[in-house]
């Protein structure tokens, strides 16, 4: 089994604002000594408490932020934050859907330009317009929307635009930070099926931060549970979800709201 993305001993802390000039500086340890491996064809779900460091961890793994300690490797090559030009090789293989779709989509760019952007930046060959239309259809949007701007869409539609963009260059790995949180079940089912297909056909490997245990259970072979910056439990999804060991994981699973019978 090939290990694609690997994080070893990752830590990141932030200095919190002081309450007064005299007060000592307080640090928040957003991520503390987390290690993980993402193997080809597998998919890892990261779940955990709000504020436990999931997005910070994802940003470290994507070289969007620099760890205080630890390293990130992609196919045995070290990945460090730096000039976009130096990371082209990495971005061609690893794409991302960030947690806040509004903040990650350029408000002045049309949908066409947003979705085609990775194709152009990475200088990928082919007809970009055709590819954009194909992607929009795949996420359940009419290709006719290509001339519109991000603010002219609903929350769930914006999220799908971000997904279309991430899938555009045909990445090997897709890192999604709550990529389906704004989607109702019927649209979500469609995107889940799309990701399943891509995994099957191209071996797309997923790293998925999600609050939705149902989604994690559906998509992920492995699970990592975060609490207060630490990975408190890690293992095969079937095992962790069926027989959680850590008290927090137990509480998490017990709190999942269910439809009345």
């Amino acid at each position: 089994m090939t290990t694609l993305l690997k994080g070893s001993g990752l830590s990141r802390s932030f200095r919190l604002p002081r309450t007064s000039l005299r007060a000592p500086a307080v640090h928040r340890h957003a991520v503390q000594d987390v290690s993980l491996e993402l193997n080809e064809g597998n998919s890892l779900g990261i779940v955990g408490e709000s504020g436990s460091g999931k997005s910070t961890l994802a940003r470290l793994l994507l070289a969007l932020d620099r760890p205080d300690a630890g390293t990130v490797h992609y196919r045995d090559r070290e990945v460090r934050p730096g000039a976009p030009r130096k990371l082209t090789w990495f971005r061609r293989e690893v794409q991302v859907v960030l947690q806040d779709p509004m903040g990650s989509l350029d408000p002045r760019a049309t949908v066409r330009d947003i979705v085609a952007e990775p194709l152009e930046c990475l200088r990928l060959p082919g007809d970009h317009d055709d590819r954009v239309d194909e992607l929009l259809r795949a996420v359940g949007l009419e290709p006719a929307v290509r001339g519109r701007y991000p603010h002219e869409f609903s929350g769930g539609q914006r999220q799908r635009i971000a997904i279309a963009r991430a899938l555009a260059p045909g990445p090997k790995v897709l890192v999604g930070d709550e990529p389906l949180s704004a989607l109702d079940v019927s649209v979500r089912a469609r995107i889940l099926a799309l990701l399943d297909d891509l995994a099957e056909a191209y071996g797309l490997t997923l790293l998925l931060v999600s609050h939705d245990i149902g989604v994690v259970r559906h998509l992920c072979t492995d699970v990592l549970v975060m609490k207060d910056g630490r990975a408190v439990e890690q293992g095969p999804a079937a095992q962790v979800l069926a027989d959680p060991r850590h008290p927090y994981t137990r509480r998490l699973l017990a709190a999942v709201p269910r439809l009345p019978a």
Binding site: E178, S181, H211, P257
Partner: peptide, 13 residues
């Protein structure tokens, strides 16, 4: 409007 989409289920509860 979708006030708990970014919350894990324990905080959501």
């Amino acid at each position: 409007d979708e006030p708990t989409t970014a919350l894990d289920v324990t905080v959501q509860a």
